[in-house]
Design a protein around this nucleic acid. Sequence first.
DNA 1: CGGAGCCTTGATGTTCTTCAAGCGGAGTGG
DNA 2: CCACTCCGCTTGAAGAACATCAAGGCTCCG
Lengths: 233, 233
Amino acid sequence: MPDSPQHADVFLAAFDRAETRELAPGDVLIAAGSPADHVFNILGGTLMLSRTGRDGRRQVLSFLFRDHFVGLTTTDRYYFTVEAVTAAKVACCSRVAFDAHLSRNPGAERAFLHMTFRVLEDMLDALYSLGQRTALERLAVFLLYLRHARRLAEGLPDSDRSLAEVALPMTREDIADFLGLQKETVSRSFAQLEERGLIQRAENHRITVRNLPGLRELAGVVDFASPRRLVRP
Amino acid sequence: MPDSPQHADVFLAAFDRAETRELAPGDVLIAAGSPADHVFNILGGTLMLSRTGRDGRRQVLSFLFRDHFVGLTTTDRYYFTVEAVTAAKVACCSRVAFDAHLSRNPGAERAFLHMTFRVLEDMLDALYSLGQRTALERLAVFLLYLRHARRLAEGLPDSDRSLAEVALPMTREDIADFLGLQKETVSRSFAQLEERGLIQRAENHRITVRNLPGLRELAGVVDFASPRRLVRP
DNA sequence: CGGAGCCTTGATGTTCTTCAAGCGGAGTGG
DNA sequence: CCACTCCGCTTGAAGAACATCAAGGCTCCG
């Protein structure tokens, strides 16, 4: 399943002429436990996919950006929540129509499978982070991940100067729940990255990268472009 | 993508008349960094999929049992290692032949997509564990997971008495690297589960479950059958 | 001006890791 | 058959990393 340009998300044609929905920050697109009858394609903004345990512990499983896809499950109810972090816009498609689209277009099915595999590989990266990396390393990886997300969403080259600015639309608590930490630890880790001269804190929701190679070294990741997950074994 | 029996892994037909390979404990089936030119279906035994960082930290991403599938990537080289934990037997299929099989059989492609989604959902469960659960909880979940794996592999009902015996073919260190802990912590957690009367340690590689409801309560999981990931939100 | 929410920082506490020692089974060679 | 060693496992003690508790600052908004 090697990358090939023509794969470029042909399955998204399922969303041509689809209804769209505008979301305000905090709006819930998918509520855990509700029937899993729609799938969505994100047209803009940032969303957050999370799962909350009985006792209130929450794990943010993924942040979602432009061109990301959400909503498919192998069960008939959603087992996760998706909510808007920033104002956002999504295209909506019924699961039935989406299924039919895949069945009618073998190319779309293959493209969708390929996308699913990329997501799976991202989750394996995240597993490595949560299982093996320290708080500081996780935060470094996270910043590179956000940088990469914007690079993809805006189609910029890795060298683009503007990428030094990294927007953090989510709260410290959201970041903490994504990285398996507490919000205080996230705060302290930001402070430590700044002390080390790797980043500079601007406002609460924006930092600028001061030493990209240093950040990558700390993260143990060269880039977030494939095949990033080969950490030189 | 609701579960339906006819999905039952039609894509596995790709492995009909395929060559098989026998593995001894410790044998490496897939070495990280080598060309990703084959896919495998496990016919028996236990394998382990892991990723090792530059500095030697290792995350076990998954244990693999009968009927599991491994080997597909979106990159042209494997970024993970797969090795045998016990003696094992696998069916081998070239990636090209597998691709062709999926293209020729739309039903197979759909079934494969479905299987991929189940794997993805398992990884999301694992993310929740690593991010939110304590050492003791992770071990409880792990034991239920092994119990469930055997239940599936042997087609037993959940009530089967023999399921109280849980085999642990892997070492404490393998378990630790799967759960994001140190082997000492795993040892201590086993001891604590025993003190609490939830399990009893037999030999090093076998325990028996003494209090299944208690174990499930601790794990926060009712069962490892779908939809287990709805932890009563 | 006042309050709420979010973030930061300090002090303290808990969990897990690290370091160290000893146990016991499996395999080896005398 | 019996040391002997090796390796994996367990347990204890000390230490580090992260969590928890608590206080104060900032910004936004009524």
